[in-house]
Simulated assay, not measured.
Amino acid sequence: MNEAEIWKKIEHFFEVNFQTEKNPPIETILFLIGVQELGSGQQKFTKDDKVNLIHIAVCRLLEAFGYYKFSHYDNDGFPHFEELEKLPDLKPNEQQLLMKKAIIQYFQDEEIELT
């Protein structure tokens, strides 16, 4: 299965399991991965919390590529990451492609079943 096919299955996973719109925006997927990584379950999040959750997801996803390393949990239970390597300057479409690859890697590493 190629990356485009896997990506379609990942989008379908979010549509079915989280009732997201068809072809959910990458920010929605990042937010939901951040919620998963936080491990606090469904709750109301402030706008700042949502930004932090997306940041958690990005750090967690890019950990597999050697850009970040988990450091610790703070007193509120939020994970923190240490930057190991600066991200290269990427154009928006290159950022999108990197995040898609990282999300695919996350699903493979976490052995999340895609149907």
Rank of each mutant, 00 (worst) to 15 (best):
M1P: 10
M1W: 01
M1Q: 10
I6P: 11
I6Q: 15
W7H: 05
W7V: 01
K8Y: 01
I10P: 06
H12A: 06
F14S: 01
F14E: 08
F14C: 01
E15Q: 13
E15V: 09
V16Y: 02
N17V: 03
F18I: 03
Q19T: 00
Q19E: 10
T20Q: 04
E21C: 02
E21D: 00
E21H: 02
K22L: 03
K22F: 00
N23Y: 07
N23A: 09
P24Q: 05
I26M: 12
T28V: 14
I29Y: 12
L30V: 06
L30S: 03
L30N: 12
L30K: 09
L30Q: 10
I33M: 09
V35N: 02
Q36H: 08
E37G: 03
L38E: 00
L38A: 01
G39T: 02
G39P: 00
G41Q: 05
Q42A: 11
Q42W: 06
K44T: 05
K44Y: 08
K44S: 11
K44G: 08
F45C: 05
F45I: 01
T46Y: 06
K47C: 02
D48Q: 14
K50G: 07
N52M: 06
N52V: 03
L53G: 00
H55L: 07
I56L: 10
A57F: 07
A57G: 12
V58S: 09
V58T: 13
L61M: 07
L62T: 02
E63Q: 15
F65G: 04
F65E: 15
G66M: 14
Y68N: 05
K69Q: 15
S71I: 01
S71T: 06
S71A: 10
H72P: 04
H72K: 12
H72A: 09
D74I: 11
N75F: 10
N75G: 10
N75A: 13
D76Q: 13
G77Q: 13
G77F: 05
F78Q: 09
F78G: 04
P79S: 08
E83R: 15
E83V: 08
L84N: 14
P88C: 07
D89I: 12
D89N: 15
D89Q: 15
L90N: 11
K91D: 08
P92L: 06
P92H: 09
N93F: 14
N93L: 15
L97T: 15
L97H: 13
L97C: 02
M99S: 04
K101H: 11
A102Q: 13
A102F: 05
I103G: 04
I103T: 03
Q105N: 12
Y106M: 08
F107E: 07
D109S: 15
E110K: 15
E110I: 03
E111F: 01
I112H: 10
E113Q: 12
L114M: 06
T115A: 13
